[in-house]
């Protein structure tokens, strides 16, 4: 160990070595690791007013995790159906949104990488970046305008006679699901595009030459090759969707709460930071477990994902 640090200082010089060590240590410890540990610790403590934090009254407890499952002691239900169902729906919807995004992005990525030619393809890839730069809130707002009861979709559907009355897309979640699918779709398309693009065109031609039908080419040649890209897209879309706050706040109907909104309420309305932390930990660990499972199932390394 001593020799390693000696060499490290020799290689970088004292000033640079110190800059590297201090800033990386600050970033990793003060910004990434310690805050998470403190949040974990906080989530296991009783909910007392801030002045009592750190005192004896601020002891350890499992009550916030129990609350998530069983609800408050006064409640007549045996389980906390509200939070549990919101949590379940959030995870299921996030999975659903992820699948929708794969289904939407794969054909487009394949088209851009192997069918479209030259200048057009480049232009389209460039164009893909544009919506990515637009604020998440505004993207949700745009959907709110479109799906409003006098929004362009309702007007169009009524005008061509499919509907005789405007349909409340917001209340029954259509706006939310399309808004969420939209929100992180580019984090799906770029990894898939990059993966598909690196496939040698000759492999497709060879398969076609051997009389392989088009769907089988995709199933046996293209998709296996694009697997790391698809997995990394799925990971990012799932994590960001499950952790989204802006889109559910703007597009969610009264009956379709998102789990992050419950966390938000615990913090900003109920003033129960401990419960908020516990719920945040639940969200974080579920997401991590999901990602680890994905990586295990599809045999992809983390290094391949975060690119």
């Amino acid at each position: 160990m001593g020799r390693y640090w000696q060499e490290f200082f020799l290689r970088n010089g004292t000033a640079l070595a110190l800059y590297l060590l201090i800033s990386v240590a600050c970033w990793m410890l003060l910004m990434i690791i310690l805050p998470q540990i403190f949040m974990l610790d906080f989530s296991f403590r009783t909910n007392v007013p801030p002045p009592l934090w750190g005192t004896e009254a601020h002891g350890y407890t499992l009550e916030h995790y129990q609350y998530m499952v069983y609800g408050s002691a006064q409640s007549t239900d045996s389980y906390n159906f509200v939070d549990l169902s919101v949590f379940g729906r959030t995870i299921l919807t996030a999975i659903f949104v992820t699948l929708i995004d794969v289904a939407l992005c794969y054909p487009v990525a394949y088209y851009l990488a192997h069918v479209a030619s030259g200048g057009w393809a480049r232009l389209m890839v460039m164009a893909l970046i544009v919506p990515f730069w637009v604020n998440e809130l505004l993207r949700a707002f745009a959907f709110k305008i479109m799906f409003g009861s006098t929004g362009i979709i309702n007007n169009f559907l009524v005008a061509i006679g499919i509907l005789d009355q405007p349909f409340d897309f917001i209340r029954n979640g259509v706006a939310l699901y399309s808004g969420l699918s939209y929100a992180y779709i580019l984090l799906m398309i770029f990894p898939i595009y990059n993966a598909v693009e690196s496939l040698d065109k000759n492999q497709i031609e060879a398969a076609r030459d051997l009389g392989c039908p088009w769907w089988r080419i995709h199933w046996r040649v293209v998709i296996p090759h694009a697997k790391p890209g698809i997995t990394s897209g799925c990971t990012m879309v799932f994590m960001l969707t499950a952790g989204a706050l802006a889109a559910p706040q703007i597009l969610g109907g009264p009956s379709s709460l998102w789990f992050t909104q419950i966390i938000y309420q615990a913090f900003n309305q109920a003033g129960n930071w401990a419960r908020g932390s516990a719920y945040a930990i639940i969200l974080l660990s579920t997401s991590i477990i999901f990602v680890l499972c994905m990586m295990k199932i599809f045999k992809v390394k983390l290094g391949e994902i975060a690119r």
């Binding site: 949040m39 994590m239 952790g243 974080l284 997401s287």
Partner: peptide
């Protein structure tokens, strides 16, 4: 931190 939900980062 890229993959951790922003909400979690904010709270922690």
């Amino acid at each position: 931190p890229i993959l951790v939900p922003g909400v979690v980062l904010g709270i922690s």
